[in-house]
């Protein structure tokens, strides 16, 4: 694949959850979840089948380079988030080497696609038990208990 080609983001079989600074993607076919950081998400959204790698690099503006876009494309392809796979531009180079090179030259965060696994405990830690108000107004109890103040019974609830 060269820079004049037009990658297309996969749409089918994916559940996408946009977060303020990242995008979470669940692949219903493989039952795998991915977390795209802002840069990777921006590249993925640009993969409309009409925008070339050069044009994508230009979107990131001054200080960016096309290797950064390629790094994102490479990971998107690896994680089956593109309609068709691409051949890595970085064949023969480790990702660490590429990231090091880009990281030094770029002012933009290096694109990262991380695998997500189910966190342990989930809500098990939430109990609404407390010994002071801070425990009700921060941590897992915040926004989940009946009140943000600790009552006489040791619960984040109304007195």
């Amino acid at each position: 694949m060269n820079n004049s080609q037009y990658p297309l983001a996969r749409k089918s079989g994916l559940v996408v959850q946009e977060m303020p600074d990242e995008v979470l993607v669940y692949d219903l076919n493989s039952n795998k979840a991915h977390c795209l950081n802002e840069t990777a998400a921006k590249v993925w959204k640009s993969c409309d089948g009409r925008t070339s790698i050069d044009e994508m690099a230009a979107v990131f503006g001054k200080g960016s380079n096309e290797d950064l876009v390629w790094l994102a494309i490479d990971q998107l392809s690896e994680n089956h988030l593109l309609e068709t796979g691409v051949t890595s531009k970085f064949k023969g180079q480790s990702r660490r080497e590429v990231i090091k090179k880009i990281g030094l030259a770029s002012v933009i965060a290096v694109p990262v696609i991380a695998s997500l696994v189910a966190p342990q405990n989930a809500l098990a830690a939430q109990s609404c038990h407390c010994v002071n108000n801070t425990q009700c107004s921060s941590g897992p109890n915040l926004g989940h208990c009946a009140a943000t103040t600790c009552n006489g019974s040791g619960l984040c609830a109304a007195p």
Binding site: V15, Q17, E22, L24, L36, N37, L116, P119
Partner: peptide, 28 residues
């Protein structure tokens, strides 16, 4: 906290739940 840290594979519980909730909606 940015969950896409290179060293970290776990998302926060709430993000995970939100994503799984969307998956479940689709499956339901």
């Amino acid at each position: 906290m940015n969950h896409c840290d290179l060293r970290m594979v776990d998302a926060s519980v709430s993000n995970w739940n939100l994503l799984q909730a969307q998956v479940q909606k689709r499956r339901v």
